[in-house]
Design a binder for these strands. Structure first.
Length: 884
RNA sequence: GCGCGCUUAGCUCAGUUGGUUAGAGCACCUCGUUUACACCGAGGGGGUCCAAGGUUCAAAUCCUUGAGCGCGCACCA
């Protein structure tokens, strides 16, 4: 394109003209693939690896703004490292999202007329429907991720439910099963009646709601009253627990009472002593219902002699065990009936309003029932054969001292506060229930067949666990599927299954995720990887908050405040979207999104585009790096080197918003407002060009499209995407910065004089300069243009006095303009300010302990500032008296 | 209840290890000469850094307490 006239380049940057085209070119070039980068020589074969894995979006539908933010973060990291010359892999994927996807499709089917899709279609039929839906979503997601400019390697796209991942899941299951870490057990689980499936403790959302607390006795002569908010479950009580040292009840411990409350059989209630009971709360005694309370179940583990009676069934109604009066009733009805019975018999002692937290299923929304069932669990407290440690131990080590005390095998969580939250979570972690009663998901790789002859009572069942189905007749696979997070937990290594990928890219260098999936995902990846591979899954995790709307509300379908990232990206440009999303992102904090930010960002992108338009007219490609000829040149190159270092530092520490701020300030202020204007006088094309060249490299990770477009417009070779990251020595020099700062202040203050006196902008003013130990003469043409002045030897008559610094002052001729009063006010204001400042400095210096204890440099600096300020005040006083 | 954050200009937020007179963007006010840009330029106003106490020569920054907001966890039966 060469030396282009500005009219040949459109005045406004049009993202639509560039984005699709550029993405296709990038993708076609193969440079998203680290192997091709090596093949084509843009990355050295022995380069440092850098890997980042996309948290696979659920195939439940389309991506939202939060995904756009995450993709921006990951792509910035990936592009930065690629430009640094690292062997960079950004691996994309999608998650089958078991429950979420199945319930989504079922909902759709119901909406389109079915009553019960599971019944009407059967397992295979429904799965087929879900698969079709998931495939469609996968395509949509891939399209959206491309639209966001993500530089991921599509040849390595991974899906949690494709063949390699299924193999990984089955292999892991078998390994854990063989090690005794996965077991099938009869334990209480969280049961969603609505979803007809279990859910793990982490899938519960605790919500507060009002409830009634009833205090009652099982019978008139029962020695202890107990309280409950779930009276109907008391039909399954088998013990009353008290604190072992509680003098009120101590003597009762060990006794068993038969009570008749209407259950199928009279209840045997044993009084047990347990340290966990708080003697100061309520009656100091707890009615123990092992079948319908996690805590009570745990208590039974400590006191195995007490019974377990399930009175609530999987349909959410009372079982036969609950007795003829209750069997078949929904729990709420049973509750009313039971309370009425207590009241009638005079057993109810107290009724009070309380608020309680109940666990609701985050997927199905109903309050879960705690029910004992036979399910599959991962044992987190069991010793791993041959390792002398439990899964919990490994999960702790990985984020504290490093696996096995090896600091090189440590996961660093940013910000650190989440480390505590994670460790606290581990402390309280129970065995993880991994079996689900839904169909969409990895089927548990366990098969059963009847061993003994048909017709026998209690036939003996044979069980087989394997990666594939066993040989032989009559085997039937377990009908349950796995918690979707089981497969996600393998993500860091199950995705690196091609060639040498595992050796090259594991542990993964960088992961980012929202704080809401720390337990679901981060923790499970650590669990799986430390156990199976004896290494950490990733080195750095960056945790961010959630994205909110401009009023601080979550984006949600019900609020209708959703914004489609693709739509808004089309309207303002993807680059604008990316900086709008990143400019507020700090580790761990929520951030807000608004269309105001989109406008600002779009305007910025356009500004950068126009800077390049200017540069395109002024210079040509291929010039050597610019040589500084003037103060301004030295200044801008020094600044550039400084902000390059700063940006690199920010990126290395994931301070995305600071990096953007640094670059934005330089681009708009130093470069556009000052240097470009100066260039119109000094015309050092090579330096101008060099600054822009470097600048678009620094910007590229954040705004890849416009920078690549500029690079093309300026005749860059190949792709900006693979050009080397600016690695320039710092050349910022204090004397240059100071002198340029004085130039800047001078110009600004002259402009200010114009504003104060309302001087016609077109009028050129005469100004005399009096520098001391400062030579700005080479910059006089620049100053003349920027301030719109003629610099003369001396200015006589009415004039405004400007004290720029202790070595530069100026007289601005106001002949025929001056307004004595206005000038007196202006000078007076300045003087008052100087005197106030001098006073505060004097007070500081007058404090004896300041001189004694503050470092010498600070004292000397303060003193120098005071001298300057005093000198300034004196001069101002002189000027003031001379004009009155 | 326990734990962890947050509170800085009208709004959204920076402020890395305590050290010149606390910053940016948006909004606001005034003015527009200058063909890179009106998706623009120039100038300007605006802050008791939540409160109180403490440490220090020096605190937005460190400590203590409190208030408000948010998050995590929890067997108040």
């Amino acid at each position: 394109m060469g030396n282009m006239e500005p009219h040949e380049i459109p005045k406004a940057y049009d993202p639509k003209e560039w984005e699709t085209k550029l993405y296709q070119k990038w993708e076609k070039s193969g440079f998203f693939n680290p192997d091709i980068c090596i093949e084509k020589g843009v990355t050295k074969a022995d380069a440092e690896p850098f890997s980042v894995l996309m948290p696979p979006p659920n195939v439940t539908g389309v991506l939202h703004l939060g995904h756009a933010m995450e993709n921006s973060i990951m792509d910035v990291a990936a592009r930065y490292h690629r430009m640094r010359g690292d062997r960079t892999l950004f691996l994309p994927g999608a998650d089958h999202a078991a429950v979420a996807t199945q319930s989504r499709v079922e909902k759709n089917l119901v909406a389109s007329g079915m009553t019960n899709p599971r019944q009407e279609l059967g397992r295979d039929g429904l799965l087929e429907k879900i698969r079709t839906f998931a495939d469609g979503s996968k395509e949509t997601i891939a399209k959206q991720v491309r639209a966001m400019g993500s530089s991921c390697d599509w040849s390595r796209f991974a899906y949690t439910f494709d063949e390699p991942r299924v193999l990984a899941v089955n292999t892991m299951f078998k390994k854990m099963y063989d090690d005794g870490l996965i077991y099938k057990g009869y334990r209480v689980v969280n049961w969603s009646v609505k979803g007809q499936s279990t859910c793990s403790d982490d899938e519960l959302e605790h919500i507060e709601r009002p409830a009634k607390l009833y205090t009652f006795r099982y019978s008139k002569d029962f020695p202890i009253a107990v309280a409950t908010t779930r009276p109907e479950t008391k039909l399954g009580d088998t013990a009353v627990a008290v604190h072992p040292d509680d003098p009120r009840y101590r003597d009762l411990i060990g006794q068993t009472f038969e009570v008749e409350v209407g259950a199928a059989k009279p209840l045997s209630i044993k009084i047990i002593g347990d340290e966990e009971v708080d003697p100061t709360f309520g009656t100091g005694a707890v009615g123990v219902t092992p079948a319908h309370s996690q805590t009570d179940f745990d208590m039974r583990e400590r006191h195995p002699e007490i019974g377990l009676i399930a009175v609530i069934g999987i349909d959410g109604s009372m079982t036969a065990e609950a007795g003829p009066a209750y069997a078949g009733l929904p729990v709420l009805e049973a509750r009313g009936k039971f309370v009425a019975m207590l009241r009638e018999k005079g057993l109810l002692e107290k009724e009070e309003e309380v608020t309680q937290n109940v666990g609701t299923s985050d997927r199905f929304g109903d309050v879960v029932e705690v029910i004992p069932m036979e399910q599959w669990f991962v044992a987190v407290n069991r010793e791993i054969p041959g390792r002398g440690k439990t899964l919990k131990d490994l999960m702790r080590e990985a984020v504290t001292e490093g696996l096995g005390g090896d600091a090189d095998r440590r996961v660093a969580i940013q910000p650190e506060q989440f480390e505590k939250i994670y460790l606290h979570w581990i402390d309280l972690l129970r065995d993880w229930c991994i079996s689900r009663q839904i169909w969409w998901g990895h089927r548990i790789p366990v098969w059963y067949r009847v061993k003994s002859k048909v017709g026998e009572k209690d036939p003996e069942i044979e069980m087989y666990c394997g990666i594939e189905a066993p040989d032989g007749e009559g085997w039937e696979q377990d009908s349950d599927t796995l918690d979707t997070w089981f497969s996600s937990g393998l993500w860091t290594f199950s995705t690196l299954d091609q060639g040498n990928d595992f050796a090259n890219f594991h542990p993964v260098s960088f992961m980012q995720m929202g704080s809401e999936i720390i337990f679901f995902w981060m923790a499970r990846m650590i669990l799986m990887t430390t156990y199976a591979l004896d290494t950490i899954p990733f080195r750095d995790v960056y945790i961010h908050g959630i994205l909110r709307d401009k009023d601080g509300r979550k984006f949600s379908k019900s609020l209708g405040n959703g914004i489609d990232p693709i739509d808004i990206g089309k309207e303002y440009g993807t680059d604008a979207l990316r900086i709008a999303l990143l400019s507020d992102v700090t580790p761990g904090n929520d951030s807000r999104f608004s269309t105001d930010k989109m406008e600002t960002s779009r305007n910025f992108v356009n500004k950068l585009w126009n800077l390049s338009r200017y540069v395109a007219t002024m210079s040509t490609a291929g010039e050597d790096s610019g040589t500084a000829r003037s103060l301004s040149d030295r200044f801008i190159l020094g600044r550039l080197s400084k902000i390059a270092t700063e940006t690199t530092g920010h990126l290395a520490e994931n301070r995305f918003s600071l990096a953007i701020e640094t670059l934005r300030a330089f681009t708009l202020d130093d470069f556009a407002d000052w240097y470009v204007e100066i260039h119109k006088v000094e015309k050092n094309d090579a330096v101008l060009r060099q600054v822009l060249d470097t600048l678009i490299r620094l910007w590229h990770p954040f705004i890849p499209f416009v920078t690549e477009a500029i690079y093309a417009t300026l005749d860059g070779k190949g792709f900006l995407m693979t050009v080397h990251w600016p690695d320039i020595p710092e050349t910022e020099n204090p004397e240059t910065s100071t002198a340029f700062g004085e130039l800047r202040t001078l110009v600004t203050r002259i402009r200010n004089i114009r504003a104060v006196y309302r001087i016609d902008p077109a009028k050129r003013l005469h100004v005399s300069l009096s520098p001391k130990n400062l030579d700005l003469s080479e910059s006089y043409p620049v100053i003349g243009r920027l301030a719109r002045i003629d610099i003369t030897e001396r200015v006589d008559g009415a004039a405004a006095e400007l004290l720029v610094s202790d070595r530069l002052s100026a007289r601005v001729s106001l002949e025929g303009i001056i307004d004595i009063d206005a000038e007196r006010v202006r000078l007076g204001k300045e003087l008052t300010e100087a005197e106030r400042y001098a006073k505060s400095l004097e007070a500081k210096l007058g404090n004896p302990s300041f001189a004694d204890r503050a470092p010498g440099a600070i004292v000397a600096q303060t003193k120098a500032t005071l001298d300057e300020t005093n000198a300034k005040a004196a001069e101002l006083r002189g000027h003031l008296s001379s004009i009155s």
